[in-house]
């Protein structure tokens, strides 16, 4: 074990700003990318269901399986 206390862990031997600055920005990028893709997918699904609803209104006799 390298660390005797939590504050020692967070200070990273005086390099805390650099080490945590790297890790936090990386974490933000990764989470951001995942959220962006999910959002893109959800927008698409919404738009498609909207189109589908319109189609249903236009063709009331269409049988949906």
């Amino acid at each position: 074990m390298n660390w005797s206390s939590a504050s020692e862990f967070f200070s990273m031997g005086g390099y805390g700003l650099y080490v945590w600055g790297s890790y936090i920005v990386t974490f933000i990028c990764v989470i951001g990318e995942i959220l962006l893709i999910s959002n893109r997918r959800r927008t698409l699904e919404k738009r498609y269901s909207l189109i589908h609803d319109l189609n249903k209104k236009e063709m009331p006799n269409e049988t949906t399986s």
Binding site: M12, G13, G14, Y15, Y18, V19, S22
Partner: peptide, 8 residues
Amino acid sequence: QQGEAYRI
């Protein structure tokens, strides 16, 4: 040499 900074 680099202390903890190398953990990057």
